[in-house]
Computed example of a mutant assay.
Amino acid sequence: MEEDILDLYKDPNTEEENNSSDEDGGLYEHLHITVDKKQEPLRIDKFLLLHRQNSTRNKISQSCRAGNVVVNGTPVKQNYKVKPGDEISILLAHPPRENVIIPEDIPINIVYEDDDLVVVDKAAGMVVHPGFGNWSGTLVNALAFHFEKNGQKSDLDRVGLVHRIDKDTSGLLVIAKTEYALSFLARQFFERTTKRLYWAFVWGNIEEEEGTVRGHIGRHLKNRMQMAVYEDGSHGKHAVTHYKVLERFRYMTWIQCKLETGRTHQIRAHMKHIGHTLFNDERYEGHTILRGVNLPKYKQFVQNVFNILPRHALHAHTLGFVHPTTKKEMYFESPMPDDMTKAVEKWRNYLENNG
């Protein structure tokens, strides 16, 4: 399980010091933020959730109740609304772990960039942000190098992840370069006004041309590496996924997914729940070959496709949002990556010859 960000690394959007505050309690400042002049009123728990990647609302609420969240020198409750110019600090009893984002010369596909944001088409296999077990080789390390190379040193500590995709998911991400852009874009994700479509290959032949999966998503009660669906709402958070069939391969289906909510592993968990696990999704048993298929050398064929596509078949295909400064709508499309394209071609050829 991931540890809270407050204990692991320096936030890229803040200034952080390792000094004990004073003798009273020996508290250490883990976070210091000066609220942007353009910031709209927002509850401090929601504000900090945007600025503390990997943190949780519960952890932030606990810090507020303990009196460890201080605004302009005074502890505040979690419903306090931040205002432009507020000085926010988080004080904890142990010294923070020192971790600076180290620029690394890693190739990345930047499809758009201006003074406010960067849109990246992430390759499968790349972790998005440094964290427990992945302190280097991430997208953020690569962006830090890109900013430095282009004389944007002032932006090295202002990389703001608005959203994330899994390590083995490919496709589009938007990264904010200022605190204002981060808040503006994050609000669109929170209010579900962004335009995002995913492409996925799933096992089996989905009967309907399109449909909707509803069910709370939360941590699996036995397998803590998985998320599970709880239709009765007993665990997890409300989640809705809309899907549409794009092409059928008899024993595998290419679908398009639109998320009404944005829960961890939402597509992966929802599709497994309805019996159509993502193709080659090892964590959710999608690397098990579909049984009951009577075709020549079928198992060997699927294994060959696994070799071509050695990860779960999920791609963030489109991304649309309103620009924080121009207020104009922006829309991006990412073509299907080579591994998924080759897998499709191989399925088509196999069925044409063995249909």
Rank of each mutant, 00 (worst) to 15 (best):
M1R: 13
E2C: 12
I5F: 15
P12V: 08
S21Q: 14
G25C: 04
L27G: 01
I33K: 08
T34A: 12
Q39S: 14
P41Q: 13
K46L: 12
K46Y: 09
N58Q: 11
R65W: 04
G67W: 08
G73P: 04
K77R: 14
D86I: 01
I90L: 07
A93Q: 10
H94I: 08
P103T: 00
N109P: 02
G131V: 00
G131A: 15
V140K: 06
A142K: 05
A142M: 03
H146Y: 12
S154C: 05
S154F: 07
S154H: 13
L156F: 09
L156C: 09
L172R: 03
L173I: 11
E179D: 15
A181G: 04
R192F: 01
T193Q: 10
A200Y: 02
F201D: 07
F201H: 06
E209P: 02
Y251K: 13
Y251N: 12
M252C: 14
I255W: 01
L259K: 03
R263C: 01
F279K: 03
D281L: 06
R283T: 09
T288S: 07
F306T: 01
P310G: 10
A313H: 07
A316D: 06
F321K: 07
P324I: 05
E329R: 13
S334Y: 07
P337E: 13
D338E: 15
T341D: 11
V344A: 13
